[in-house]
Amino acid sequence: MTDRTDLNSGSLTYEGVRFPFGEGTPFALTDFKRGTAGIRANDAARPGRDGTALGVSYKDGPKHELSIAVIGRGDTRTEQEADTRALLQDLAGVWSADTLRSRSGGLAALTIGTLTAYGHPREFAPDDSALWSGLAEPTLTFQAVDDLWYGPEQVSRVHLITGSTGGLPIPADVPFVLDGGDGVSDHVVTVDGSAPAWPVFNVRGPIQDPFIEVVGVGRLNFRGQLAYDQTLTVDTRPWARWILRDGNPFPGALSPSGARLSDMSLNPGQHRVFFGGYDPTNTAVLEVRIQAAYRSL
Rank of each mutant, 00 (worst) to 15 (best):
P249Q: 12
F124I: 07
I112C: 05
A108S: 08
G224R: 05
G247P: 07
G119I: 07
A53E: 15
E153N: 02
A108T: 09
P121W: 06
L297N: 11
G193L: 06
R295K: 12
E123F: 08
Q154F: 00
W239K: 14
D6L: 15
N221R: 07
P26Y: 13
P26I: 14
D235A: 04
S296R: 10
H159C: 02
E23N: 15
F19K: 15
R4F: 12
P256Q: 05
K59M: 12
A227M: 14
R46S: 10
P268W: 00
D98K: 13
A136D: 04
D235K: 07
F176Q: 04
R18M: 11
I212R: 01
A92F: 09
V214I: 12
L178H: 08
W149M: 07
T111S: 08
H64I: 04
L178P: 06
T52M: 12
E23Y: 15
A109L: 04
M1F: 09
D229E: 07
A136H: 05
L66W: 06
V203N: 01
D127L: 06
D31V: 13
P171N: 02
A197D: 05
S102L: 12
T165P: 01
R289T: 00
K59I: 05
I290R: 02
H120M: 12
W132A: 11
I39K: 15
K63C: 06
W239Q: 15
H271F: 01
F27W: 15
G151P: 02
F211A: 10
L54S: 12
P251K: 03
P210R: 00
A108E: 04
V188A: 03
S156Y: 11
F274W: 08
A130N: 07
S102E: 13
P238I: 05
G93M: 06
Q225C: 13
G276S: 01
D246K: 08
T76R: 04
